[in-house]
Computed example of a mutant assay.
Amino acid sequence: MNRSVIVTGAGRGLGRAHALAFAAAGYGVIVNDVDAEQAERVVDEIAGQAVACAGDVADWDGAANLVDRALSTFGRLDVLVNNAGFVRDRMIVSTGEAEWDSVVRVHLKGHFAPLRHAAAHWREQHKAGRPVAARVINTSSGAGLLGSVGQCNYSAAKAGILGLTLVAAAELARYGVTVNAIAPAARTRMTEQTFAELMAAPIEGFDAMAPENVSPLVVWLGGEQSGSVTGQVFEVEGGRVGLLHGWQRGRSVRRDHRWTPEELGPALLSLLDGAPAPLPVYGA
């Protein structure tokens, strides 16, 4: 075992697939899930070094415990895969405060808290003169990139993860840490309704919605060979992997004094005229 990894939300779906793939690649694996029994089941599936560490990743002390468990078990931490999450889908006018808070908490704070504690460890290692080749892989979504009708809370949290990824990549590069994000499409409990038709119709024996299709990208991003790749977002679905580009500046108008609303309106319409149309929101 040369490297170790924490995978959050690893009891089922994508997280489980990632944990199994890292174990097959020779990593020591910390299998995290809020469901302790499910985390233990995944550990039992792994033919290698793995331990379960159940807990809420959005809890500050619980996130710190994940890092401590990796260090006490394997003597090192090299990769953090932030994957844990769930959905509470509602249209905006039907979304309650609890539904907003719980989804944003688990997805967004649940990414930040483990990242914060892992980053502190890697900074200490770097300052002590020890070599660091650490990797963070965050999990966003097409909903975070384009929005998704009926998922205002989930879309906002997943968009926040993209912003967090960019900042972390910039801040942690000096310590030997890369930070990237994926936007996967796969069959999980969160997406079983969305992808119901695709699940029922595999393409010539290839299950394009299998979570296992996503894991090779995650394992590669977690390896030492990916050290030149950071601050990137990859979309992955079935056998397709694509690079995504975020907001980029388009045309602008400028003058040397303050605009009036009456003057600004026609100028804005001229900017929009001929500009590329935004990609549609999912479900629109």
Rank of each mutant, 00 (worst) to 15 (best):
R116C: 00
R116L: 01
H117P: 07
H117M: 03
A118M: 02
A118N: 00
A118V: 00
A120H: 00
A120T: 00
H121K: 09
H121C: 06
W122T: 02
W122E: 02
Q125Y: 00
Q125L: 02
Q125K: 01
Q125P: 01
H126A: 10
H126Y: 09
K127F: 01
K127E: 14
K127D: 12
A128V: 02
A128N: 12
G129H: 03
P131R: 13
A134F: 04
A134P: 09
V136H: 00
V136F: 00
N138W: 06
T139P: 05
T139A: 09
S140L: 10
S140R: 10
S140V: 07
G142T: 10
A143F: 07
G144T: 03
G144M: 03
L145G: 02
L146I: 09
S148Q: 15
S148D: 07
V149P: 00
G150H: 11
G150Y: 06
C152S: 15
N153I: 08
N153E: 06
N153M: 05
Y154C: 02
Y154P: 07
Y154M: 04
Y154S: 08
S155A: 15
S155G: 11
A157S: 13
A157Q: 07
A157M: 07
K158R: 14
A159I: 00
G160K: 09
G160R: 08
I161K: 07
I161Y: 02
L162A: 03
L162I: 14
G163V: 01
T165I: 01
L166P: 00
V167C: 08
V167T: 13
A169P: 04
A170V: 07
A173M: 06
A173P: 04
R174D: 14
R174F: 04
R174A: 15
R174P: 08
Y175D: 10
Y175W: 12
Y175K: 03
G176R: 09
G176E: 11
V177L: 01
T178Y: 10
T178Q: 13
T178V: 13
V179A: 05
V179I: 05
V179N: 03
N180K: 07
A181N: 03
A181H: 06
I182A: 14
I182Y: 11
A183V: 04
P184D: 12
A185T: 15
A185F: 10
A186T: 04
A186P: 04
A186E: 10
R189G: 05
T191S: 14
T191I: 04
T191M: 09
E192S: 13
Q193L: 14
Q193C: 01
A196R: 12
E197F: 11
L198H: 06
M199Q: 09
A200P: 01
A200T: 03
I203L: 15
I203W: 13
E204A: 15
G205V: 12
F206H: 15
F206S: 11
A208I: 11
A208M: 10
A208P: 02
M209G: 06
